[in-house]
Structure formats: C-alpha cells, structure tokens
Design a binder for these strands. Sequence first.
DNA 1: ACCTGAACACCGTTCAAGT
DNA 2: ACCTGAACACCGTTCAAGT
Lengths: 182, 182
Amino acid sequence: MRADAKRNRDRIVEVAREVFREHGYDASLDEIAKRAGVGAGTLYRHFPTRDALLDAIMQSWVDRVNEATEKALAFEGEDRELLIGWFETYASLISLHKGGPAKITSAMGNPDSPIVSKCQVLTAASQRVIDRLEADGALRADVDAVQVCQLVGGVATVADNADQPVSAVRPLLEVVADGMLR
Amino acid sequence: MRADAKRNRDRIVEVAREVFREHGYDASLDEIAKRAGVGAGTLYRHFPTRDALLDAIMQSWVDRVNEATEKALAFEGEDRELLIGWFETYASLISLHKGGPAKITSAMGNPDSPIVSKCQVLTAASQRVIDRLEADGALRADVDAVQVCQLVGGVATVADNADQPVSAVRPLLEVVADGMLR
DNA sequence: ACCTGAACACCGTTCAAGT
DNA sequence: ACCTGAACACCGTTCAAGT
C-alpha cells in the first residue's frame, strides 16, 4: 500500500471513531470523509460498506476486551457477583456508540457478518467466564456463550435505544444472572 | 373532519400497515403516500412524524393484545410454562414489523414517547400475568411489569435484528423466566 | 379546509478526470 | 495506484398554488 493511501486509511478510521461516538453508528459517511480531509470516493475505496469501517474501528478495541476479561476472571468473590460484573463489563464494551449494541448483537452467531471475528472475541471472552463458573458447579448445564452474549446484548440494546447508561439496566442483568445460575 | 380527509387518513393507515410489514419501520413514507394515492403533504398533515403513524397503526392492535392476555391467563398448568408462554406471546405482539421491537421497547417507560398509551397497554397486560404468578407465590418479589417488558423486548429485538422468528430465541426466554421465578 | 406535487435539502454511491 | 469531487439517485419535508 502506498504511503499516502495508508495515511488516509488511518486518518479515516480515527475520524470515524470520533464521529460514530458523537453521532452514533448512523452518522453521515460524507461527514467522516470531509473531517478526514479526503474525497468521498477515497472512503469508499478503503471501506466499501459501513460495516467494514466498523470492523476497522473495532481492531484496537479487541485489546480492551481481553484486558477486561482478565480483570473479570481475577475477581475473587461470589459467583453471582462475578457474573453480574461481567455482564456490566460486556454491556459497556459493546456500547461503543449509539447503535453499536444492536449492530454487534445482531451479528452474533451470524457467520456471514463482516464483523464475525470481533463477535468471536466477545463469545470467547464470555466462554472463559462461563467455564470458570461451570468449574464451580454454579451454572445450569444448558447455557452457551452465544446465548449469553445475545441476552446481555439484548439488555444493552434496551439501554442504548432508551439513551440510558448501562447502569440503568442493572436490575435486568440481575434477572438474567439468576436465570443462569443454579 | 371532512369526509375526504377521513377517507385519506384511513387509507394512509391501512397502506402504512402493509408497507411497514413489507419493508419494516424504516420504509419510505413517500411510497406509503404514493400507494395510498395521496400527495406527500397530505400524509404529513395527518401524521407529522413517523411515530404518529405508528401510533395510529397500533390502534386496532390493542384488541389483539387484550385477547392474547385473556388467553394466556386462562392457561391451566405450571407457572413456568405460563410465564414462558406469555413471553412468546408478548414477543410476537411487538414484532409487528422489522424495527418494531426496538421501537416499542425503547419507548417503554418513557412518558414522552408518542406511543406511550400503547406501551401502557402492554405493561398492564404483563402486570396481570405477574399478579397471577404472585398470587401463587411463584415470583421473586422484586420484578415489575416495565422490567419484564424491557427484558422480553430486548430478546425480541435480538430476534428481529437477526431476522429470525421469535421461536428461535425461546431458550433465552427460558433463562429470563427462570431468573424471575423462585 | 384540505389536497397536490414541485422544490429544496440531505445523504449515499459512483465514476470520469486528474496526479 | 490512488485521489478528488461533481453528478446522480433517493428520500424526507415544506409550501405555494389549486379545489
């Protein structure tokens, strides 16, 4: 890739992150191009779809997911608290910007989504939490990681749609946790 | 209201119901006007916002909610089955068209929403189911109707976003039910 | 009083011309 | 090889003119 192409690409991703945070996932791509100082065609050349741009944005976000997972697993205390804590972390992680929770959760379990690899990072993280609880014998046998991601994603979507912080839906997360635990 | 105005209004609602079912809640309002055989301005005169049109569509839908509630309450069997059955019914009721679950669920508990009255119909219905279960002593004390609507609405939104039928998310509804029951 | 539809604004997407 | 930005298409919304 040519140096100027790489520079443009990086700049677009950086600006997109900013604009998505400000205006949500439905933000104007034209504004992103303008703020990045490139023509509209350049944006489309690098990212043929809106989702491709989202995928690029989430590249650096993977590190944060892994960090948060380690932190959750290091928690020493009651299983219920661990689980609810992870739910809150998970919900926050997918609340990158308005429209994010719905976008990510609907991609969950869909192998054709342009952001599959990012969903896998999330399901893998949830799987690790589940494994830890399963080892404690604290879990009902029939829950899998994708279901957990969908459920918590659904709750996060509720909060996002209502323009409320994740903390506002904590009672819902507690119900979900209780439904999963023995 | 003049006779021709009423005729136009009714026609718009009827067509909107059809078009929303076909193309989801984001369908083009222009297409609705065209199919209804009215000018774009006429649609805007009767329904200044997209939500006002949705509210009108849901007018007749209220009867269906009440019917379904009676049917759910008439169920004789285990509490768990009753609750899961109601969840499935609820999820189907708010899946009027693509985008419906998110729209309705985000309006839940927001007094300024243009479709508040419709949300109240839903929460009242859920409250009746909750009351029945509470009388049986089957419920955890700390669940209210709005929370139930939000949780089940969140699950319905997951199904809707992934273009899947309500039946596909039944395992998630079971987890929610188990979280609510003693 | 109500309706029509042209006009405007806005945004996504493409592509010919330029470097 | 990559970029630009004008051009096109599409849709929401308004409003002057018509009945």
